[in-house]
Design a protein around this nucleic acid. Structure first.
Lengths: 297, 297
DNA sequence: ATTATTTGGTAGTAATACTACATAAAATAG
DNA sequence: CTATTTTATGTAGTATTACTACCAAATAAT
């Protein structure tokens, strides 16, 4: 049932980004509308067609033409899509941090940008590849996670979340030990390699070594890069490539969400197979928790 | 009727959550509308007033009355707010994972839930406390991050992102070493303690020890818990407390975003003071990157 | 320079959301 | 248990609103 829903929501990309990109291709009075929209989206959102036209200093039909020009069927649909986009926070263009920003503004911008990027990652995720990764992990005899730097943290996190029903898994953060571990892997084992850039040589070597031993390799990267050529399953986690400033931050969080998905999916799958679903899930969750006395007060 | 109460509790919040909460206080034909909305929000969103009324099997004014009952000024505003909420993904109630879910559905649900939770965290964040934390960190001579388990990963991440203009910072994941490090801290130093539950004794001890030495302590927790009483600045990162299933996952990500905010803010601040803004920022970012040859192909 | 073609505005139309009123149902009092 | 008030729902009407067909101006091409 829900497939259409998903598809309906997914390709409906951030309208503000679309407007910004379409800007040069618009005729000049339509551009007036576009600029007005980018300037103060909230204002347009709460305005009727007539008001929007007045604000942009054009006629009402021009506003409508603008709407169809950027791919909407009319003003109403445009407003709805605008509302959706605004929920995620202001656009990338607006979220440049300045030293004059108040704390509240920083919160708004960074949260907004994070959410927009997650939305982007979601709609660009290759579910088919993800499905193959889940299948591999579900059958794995042991799992090893690899990553360096920020990606190393993702690997660590994965290792913490994957105490899957007794399947041993580990995560090495040392280049040397990574190679050693990889060289010990064999058929039935699965290596998951995180690399934001996808260019890190050490990680490519790990992939090679693991595969030579007969293990399957899943690569998670933020860009279509060399690493993925050396993997059995390539998962591309695209984030807004807009600014250098945010990229590392965002890619890390998007990768963590992907880990969540993999973990949940594999959990559900293994569960379904073994039958003792709830107990196992609870167990899995208990392992994720930090323990302490309920109320030491 | 208690619309005000509802609005007071969740100001400008996810409409679907509001509708769900208001359900019992509605009159029965309004409830028909509410149920229809919760059942298939997308359908209502793309419908006109007349169609929405027909779908709910009530008259048009009843639909409008429903809208004002939940705090909107009319049907139009309701639709806009619904669009906003839908952008974040389906409601919490709808995102229970089942083993029948396709990969695409899992992606949709987990991303949606993550985004909704981030939205929640954002709107419940105490910016004033955050501001005080930023002030402390900006003046710090050295910074230490503490955390165990999932929160330990957050601490590690913070330590990786905070190579602040030469201010030394560290992160210990071993309880023993944590106490040792804490006991060495003194006036001018700042300890940042992450604890999702806020009940972990080890972390409370760290806070005590660090403070006794004269250091300032910033606590980041997912709940208003004992730990925060032992801190100079308490940052509460609220996430949707809905299900046990997602909690650890979400709180971790929300905490990472908070780290991003702290890091960026302190960076901007230190920068402004020292004047060589861009160079430093770039340097800071370079340190976050994973290095490798640009294109080994 | 004159004709096409593109771009912008005017006026009209159909639909939409909202309001005032009236009736039906429920609750309370006599 | 009826009578009366109060509450809840639907009907009919109105004012807006979005959209369309048409025309005029500007621009580009021949």
């Amino acid at each position: 049932m829900a497939y259409e829903d998903i598809m309906a929501r997914a390709p409906g990309q951030n309208i503000l980004e679309i407007v910004r990109q379409a800007l040069p291709n618009l005729r000049k009075s339509e551009r007036k509308v576009a600029n007005r929209v980018l300037e103060d989206p909230d204002r347009i959102l709460n305005a009727a067609l007539a008001e929007a036209a007045a604000l942009s200093e054009v006629s009402e039909p021009t506003v409508i033409r603008f709407c169809v020009a950027i791919g909407c069927t009319g003003f109403q649909e445009f407003k709805l899509r605008l509302a959706r986009s605004l929920a995620l926070g202001t656009t990338a263009t607006h979220s440049v941090l300045t030293k004059e920003d108040t704390t509240a503004e920083l919160v708004e911008k960074i949260f907004g940008y994070t959410m927009t990027s997650l939305d982007w990652a979601r709609s660009h995720l290759d579910t088919e590849a993800l499905g193959r990764a889940i299948a591999l992990l579900s059958e794995a005899r042991s799992i090893e996670f690899f990553g360096l730097g920020a990606s190393g943290i993702v690997a660590l996190d994965a290792q913490q979340k994957f105490p899957l029903f007794g399947v041993p898994c580990g995560a090495q953060s040392d280049t040397h030990q990574q190679l050693m571990t990889a060289s010990m892997m064999q058929a039935g084992d699965v290596a998951v390699i995180f690399s934001n850039t996808g260019h890190t040589i050490a990680m490519i070597e790990v992939a090679e070594v693991a595969r030579n031993g007969g293990a399957k390799v899943i690569g998670v990267s933020g860009a279509s890069a060399p690493l993925l050529d050396h993997c059995d399953v390539a998962i591309l986690v695209e984030t807004l490539d807009n600014t250098d400033i945010y990229t590392p931050t965002i890619s890390r969080i998007a990768a963590l969400v992907v880990v969540d998905i993999l973990c949940s999916a594999v959990g559900l799958r293994r569960d379904a197979e073994h039958g003792h679903r709830f107990e196992n899930m609870k167990q899995l969750l208990r392992n994720q928790r930090i323990y302490g006395p309920k109320k030491p007060v």
